[in-house]
Amino acid sequence: MKKFALLSLLFCSVLFGCEKSESETPEPDVKEGTYVGTVTVDQTDGTFFSQENVSLTVTKTSDQTIEMKMMKVKFAEEMPLTLDMTVSGIAYTRSETKSLISGDNIIPTAMGGEFPAYTITDMSGEITNEGAIRFSMKCGSFPLSFEGTAQK
């Protein structure tokens, strides 16, 4: 009888807990995950270089910052290699439908360490709740933009 009472109590508590979690709606936050899109780099000679199907991962690193990692990206046609570039410490603020991102004087990491020659400046953009991302920035002296959508 005692065992039955304990089991009933446990069952009720589990059921209550489940109902409680289902009734709560999570606070909308920056949409983490992997995005695929197009990088466009102003070559500052009147031409633009675009690379399609570039993967970019967004990871929340604190309540106000995210980290972006662009995978296998190149910035000019002549580049004989692609590389992974990580930009940390990007600030974001939330609105009801999107997160606004911004950053300045961020030293990216690539090729095993920091890359001061390609310091990120004038970064601004947004990540919508529906999974669209677009931003622009200067990577060193090269203006760069990215526009993509979240991978499901």
Partner: peptide, 9 residues
Amino acid sequence: EDLGVYPEG
């Protein structure tokens, strides 16, 4: 891969 560099071609 550790460096995050991928030679093309």
